[in-house]
Write a protein that binds this DNA or RNA. Sequence first.
DNA 1: CCACAGGGCGGCA
DNA 2: TGCCGCCCTGTG
Length: 296
Amino acid sequence: MVYKKIILKDVNNFELKDIFECGQCFRWKKEPNGSYTGVVKIGVLNVSKFKSMVEICGYINEQADLKSFCQDYFDLNTDYDKAKKIISKNDTTMKEAIKFGKGIRILNQDPFEMLISYIISAANNIPRISKTIENISRECGKKISLSIDENKKLTGNNEAKVYYLFPSPKELSKCTMEKLRECNLGFRDKYVYGAAKQVADKKIELNIIMLKEYKEAKKELMLIDGVGSKVADCILLFSMKKTEAFPVDTWIIKIMNEVYVETKNLKKINEYAFNKWKEYAGIAQQYLFYYKRENS
DNA sequence: CCACAGGGCGGCA
DNA sequence: TGCCGCCCTGTG
């Protein structure tokens, strides 16, 4: 692990709180100094912002290119001004939602991590989801130990700290059911174990599914036990660049019924959003979800 | 003690 | 299809 740092100048549509607390990720934590620290594929990163300048530093793999990783991870190639303009046309609710969550960006996270994380999210609450993911990473993932000085350089905190990468499919599938049970997965343990094993054995190939079109990719993800419509859409949106994906959860049902379409049929809500917002459905979902959840 | 939390599954009409 | 009980577990 080596320390690297980059600075992004003149970023817009980029607010730390909106990005990290809009519900798309579970491993980013706010630090006392206002920055956020999170474990990603290449190591542990810290992000801070001053005016329109974003600083990203981290202890990462020596081979990793921090700049190009961030370009993709923080979705810097997507034009959010354009997306906002299109989805908010003749839509006062969307305008409000966008105003509230103006700094949201859809992170491009790791597909396997999203698969497991969203299986865990079923009928669960956020603190427990985060805790469970930390448990799994601690049990099965690679360790990154930072000394006091190193961690201070990263986060500003004057203490040594140990971070854990999210486990690879192989690492997680080697974990015993007993160990998994100690991670507090509850009834989801068998789903997590099964999914990890299928990916490790290449029965499921996420990088191939990722190349398929949205509906086909969703169908294939839903073959995995524990992955239904909502979880599949989360995986597709947060790690496979399928911006048509529109995860329908309890919050989205509420706001969709109130404002757009009155039905309890989740598939109909899905179809409605797909037709209305097309390739911007996922972005629309994030604004609506964050707005509704934070204001209820 | 009970309801419920960022769903999914299986059984039933 | 549509509806419902159940699935762990912590929290109010």
